[in-house]
Every structure is written in C-alpha cells, then in structure tokens.
Amino acid sequence: MTLRVRFVLACTLLAQVLLKSPSLEASVLLPLSTAQLVARAERIVVGTVVGQESHWVDGGSAIVTDVRIRVTRAVLGAQEGEIITVRRLGGTVGEIGMRVFGEASFRDGEEVLLFAERRGGAYYSVGMTQGTLHITQQGGRRMAQMALGGAEIVGRSGVAPVVRPLEEVLDEVRRALAARRPEPAQGRSEQTR
C-alpha cells in the first residue's frame, strides 16, 4: 500500500468519524420538532374531520384526497367554525387505490390538531404524517397523539411520552409561534424552507 493510498484511507476514516452525528435527523422522512412544524405551518387548527373525497389529479397520474375539517379552535390562519380543506396524497377512486408511504391519514369524525402549509395550490399536512396529531380522550383529558418525528422522539435522551395532553402541546405551539420571526405569509417558496 503506497503512502498516498494510506493517507487517503486515513482521511476517509477521519472524515467519517468527524461527520458522524449523534442525533436522529435525516430520514426517509426528516423528523420535525414542534417548533419546526410551527415554523412551516400557515394554518394551525384543532378541528373535526367532516368529510373526505378522493380524485385523480395531474391528468390521471395520481390520486389525492381532499379532507374537510371544521375548525373548532383556530391557532393560526383560520377562524373557528370555518371549514378548511387539507389535501393528502393517495386514496381510492373506483377500483384503483394509491398509497404513499408516510403520508397523513384522517378518519371521518375524528378530531385532529393540524399543522398545514400551502404547496402547489393546496394545503397539506406539514411533514406528511408528522403535522397531523390525533386527539383522543383519556381519563377525561384530551390527549394529542404525537406522530413520528415530534421533537420529543428525535433525541435518544429525554424521550417524552407518545401521547401528550392537548393543552400542553398547544402551549408549546403558542410559545413557538411567539418565538417565530414575523415573515410574510404569502409568496414564500417551499423550496427555500
């Protein structure tokens, strides 16, 4: 083995050691913290799913499902009582089904805490499944089921419960909103985030 080859190998090993990161960060889905969800969201609401409709888009290349949500609690970009629509990739139309791995899903009648951003003319759940928290009742308390990638599950230490009280999550959202630097709500490019 020549000196040059040894040098390159040593550099490679050194670079791998230096570049190794202890945090869980990149992914097939990049996990997003609550602050990151808030930073990207243009709408944050608690609401009830009142209907869903799947249809073809892009000249028949794909199926999407438009989910209608009645806002029961508006945190950002919506009003109580308003019905907003969030789109998810996939669904079924007639005898064809389309599944996109990692995409959010909704059930009629369920209550969710939704972080939505606008992309290509429609609102989508931020971070796919991560921006849709499902609300359940447990012991008389309303709990939000954190989806994959909340800040609490990213690190190996300090792992928080999978299910958290809704009010606790909303408090965290409000704090993140307060810390969010004011920026124009419109005209932001998805690509720059």
Binding site: A26, S27, V28, L29, L30, P31, L32, R40, V57, D58, G59, A62, V64, L89, G90, T92, G94, E95, I96, G97, M98, R99, V100, F101, G102, R119, G120, G121, A122, Y124, V126, G127, M128, Q130, G149, E190, Q191, R193
Partner: peptide, 22 residues
C-alpha cells in the same frame, strides 16, 4: 391539460407510490 403540479413535503427524502386494485 392544465392541472397544477402537486408538490411534496420537503422533509421527505424519497416517496414511493404504489397503485393497486381496490
């Protein structure tokens, strides 16, 4: 035919779509 593009989530490194008989 004028349909708009469908943009994906920035946090997804890759997306696999499967079409199947329903």
């Amino acid at each position: 035919q004028g349909d708009r593009e469908s943009c994906y989530d920035a946090s997804a490194a890759a997306i696999t779509t499967v079409f199947f008989v329903n």
